[in-house]
Design a protein around this nucleic acid. Sequence first.
DNA 1: CTAAAATCCTGGTGGC
DNA 2: TGCCACCAGGATTTTA
Length: 270
Amino acid sequence: MPELPEVETIVRGLRNQLKGKVFSAIEIGWENSIRTDREEITTILPGKRIISLDRRGKYIVFTLQHEWYLIIHLKMSGRLLLQHADDEVHPHVRTSFFFHDGSSLRFQDMRKFGRVYFLQNSDSVLGNLGPEPLADSFTLQEFQSLFEKRTGRLKPLLLNQQFIAGLGNIYADESCFTAGLHPAISVNMLKKKHMKKLYHAIRGVLECGIMNNGASLDEIYQGGSFQNHFCVYGRTGKACTTCQTPIERIVLAGRSTHFCPSCQGGTRRH
DNA sequence: CTAAAATCCTGGTGGC
DNA sequence: TGCCACCAGGATTTTA
């Protein structure tokens, strides 16, 4: 569930607190959460200092000394909690990182989908990601060029992290609504003007998400308020905020997809 | 090639 | 009240 705005909010909250900390140990509670060599992370991570903390797509990237990286993907139910080493440990904690100053970073993940990587070649995890939609360097022209030789329907493409990084089910639906485009439209039917609307929709929706500290749908991620600004996501049967038509729900790429059949008729036939 | 479906997971929910 | 099928979904893998 954490998508770009939620991950960005999490990183902003942790960055200053974690910067400069030096790892002392790691405790692995769920083996599968570690997706790189177990021997390396347990022996090489201790002693490494955190240089910086950043976000790439939905990944949290710790840049460490000597060109090592600790990369975490929260997937659906992951959380990162900064505690004291002797604080009570929640049963869903899958991995604990300890620091020399007595603090501890807990990776809590009920669903066990989350992943931890410790490696030097960060491209092996991040290399195939599409562009960052909010980067200053990400221009409309670049966005439009992404559609070259692309086929298929719009929403599955927006969810494809190799196409563009950071969109998940919520922000993909909201972006389609804001752009006035049907989520099932074939992308080869999109004209430049549609891509332009979509470009501004994606950036606007993500910016709005970050301004609201992300969306809090359940106890997994708290503190955000973007859920109060949803136009279509999770609003099946409710009145469209623009035209009062009931929001419809269909399944695309195995995902719940919400849209207004009246407002999102842009380039019909799908 | 695309695209759909299965996979990994747990907890909450709705039906009976 | 208890049981169970089913749903949620990010990214990868398998199957059609």
